[in-house]
Design a binder for these strands. Structure first.
Lengths: 335, 335
DNA sequence: CTGAAAGCGCTTACAG
DNA sequence: CTGAAAGCGCTTACAG
């Protein structure tokens, strides 16, 4: 592997000059600069990011933690993160935490050793163990859909309460009175807030809150199936279900169909996220769109500002958008 | 940030001894070893992977390229890669190529500069531009569902032809005679092979091959919608469709329903991949399961063997498994 | 505009 | 069992 020194010899200049020339420093005479570039090109030189990192104490590297990249929300968000990072010459370390404290600790250690310049955490619990570990890192951290007041922790969140309220209101306006909430049992802040929006819409419409209509899945289709099962077994099942996320809704949908009922004829269903697949569900899912890519982008832009020396607390809330498709309709006449 | 030297001072030993002690070298007296560990612990020492990488000329880093991590196949495969890598102390650099030659070149450059120890490429075209770039890297490369003979390129692939043949045969055994192939227009090798398996099954059953029944999408739901549209517009549409992948099938499914037809009553549908969502489709999708996580694992295991000095060519084929669910049934009586 | 020198934080022969 | 020294491949004051 050819190094800066090899090029220096070939060009009859010092290492310093090569280093400068390669980064187009105006300090280097234009001809030598070009000559060095040419030699570098011909010799297949590839600057060592690791050596540079050691010298500059910056790695131009961002650590990204997701619960699991197999979760479509995480994947679609990471897309935005990757794109924005790439545009600025940053590379991504990707790690899955599986919401497991042991792994979370390992990820933090790993990112510390790798000397990442910053961290973005997507859709994570950020619980009592995790938070201090993160805060203990001496680099800026941006949470996506998580919040945790701390010196070096910033975040971008969707307007959960508002969007959920709107989604629930949509169901109410269609005439639904028995609306269930299918949440995520892991206790994400997003879940609490979305539930809050649901309750608020109920209250505003003077609809009674029925604890029986609140069930919990695991944020994945399987949990949606299970939770829906409980709702269907109720003496008086709901006519509409608002789901914590699309991924759960997909499971709920399946379970409803499996029991011979139809969406939206018998039960209306609303999701959250607007995953790529939401519009291809059968029927296409009414949901709250999160600008996932954009949120990913925002997270890295915040990180970059912080790394550039910005001394601010970034707590950005982006609006959700209700996308009405075909999984919602007025309740069946018999109700 | 505390360094090895700081610890050396605190412990009254040399840097070398600290370095050895921290890595539990038997060369260090047990008491000093423990003492150093204690001091490291108390001072919050975190070894610098970048300094170590520079010294050892190994980064314990794997570059992972996917077309886009928003593709569920890629995401689920990367899960296996991440897990296996993590178990061996390797970190992952993740990059999306978007099947764009310009980005592909950038990714290669970036990985070269980062001095990744190896590369795994998932579901990529590995075309005429991309291949030589990859081969030009002086590190081992493992393709997942791609093949490209070269010194440093290895691969793990699903048995495309066999699995596709089996899937098509399943349709034939149900009584279908007009079976369409919905492929991926990007020209992946996987597409060619899956198409090959389809043709072979047709031939074996003495069914005529009809070019009109071959349409192409883009590997995503939208492309599935478009391609299905063409099939439905045919004077005599097929009674069954075998799709290149589940993600496309999801779109095809939607399009079929949108036109008022039903799956499997009017048209049977078979996918490929067995994505997490396949079983939650409406109806649950008959498909070919790819052991995605396992394939990801295999890829890093091959890489590790190669990095450990193995001098072999790894070309591993794993079997697919036909999973019969509810999207396939005999053709409607009228046919 | 250019170079010599020191330093980034580790590892690893080599010598004792 | 331990240490001094060199080196990994860059960057960056400092001096000219």
């Amino acid at each position: 592997m050819v190094s800066i020194r090899d090029i220096a010899r070939l060009a009859n200049v010092s290492d310093s000059t090569v280093s400068r020339a390669l980064r187009d420093s105006p300090l280097v005479k234009i001809e030598t600069r070009e000559k060095i570039h040419r030699i570098a090109e011909e010799s297949g030189y590839r600057a060592s990011a690791v050596a540079r990192s050691l010298a500059t104490r910056r790695t131009r590297t961002i650590g990204v933690v997701v619960t699991t990249i197999a979760d479509p929300f995480a994947a679609e968000t990471v897309c935005g993160i990757e794109e924005a990072a790439g545009e600025h010459g940053y590379s991504l370390f990707l790690a899955n935490s599986h919401a497991d404290p042991y792994r979370e600790a390992k990820v933090v250690t790993s990112f510390e050793e790798r000397r990442v310049d910053g961290v973005v955490v997507t859709s994570s619990r950020v619980g009592t163990l995790w938070a201090p570990l993160l805060a203990g890192m001496r680099v800026p951290i941006v949470l996506i859909n998580g919040q945790h007041p701390s010196d070096n922790i910033h975040w971008v969140v969707i307007a959960n309460a508002q969007a959920s309220r709107e989604a629930t209101r949509h169901l109410i306006q269609l005439g639904h009175q028995r609306i269930a909430y299918l949440g995520d049992r892991h206790g994400y802040q997003s879940d609490t807030e979305r539930f809050g929006g649901y309750r608020k819409a109920l209250d505003e419409a003077d609809l009674p809150f029925e604890p029986d209509l609140v069930v919990y899945g695991d944020g994945k289709p399987d949990g949606g199936v299970r939770a829906m099962e409980i709702l269907l077994a109720l003496p008086k099942p709901p006519t509409a279900v608002f789901c914590f996320n699309d991924y759960s809704a997909v499971g709920a949908l399946r379970r409803i169909h499996a029991s011979g009922l139809r969406v939206p004829d018998d039960i209306s269903l609303v999701g959250f996220d607007d995953l790529n697949i939401a519009q291809y569900a059968e029927p296409p899912l009414t949901t709250v769109r999160q600008p996932k890519q954009h949120m990913g982008r925002l997270a890295v832009e915040i990180l970059l500002k912080l790394l550039a020396g910005a001394d601010a607390e970034y707590c950005i809330t982006v609006p959700g958008e209700l996308i009405v498709r075909e999984s919602t309709a007025p309740p069946p006449a018999s109700h």
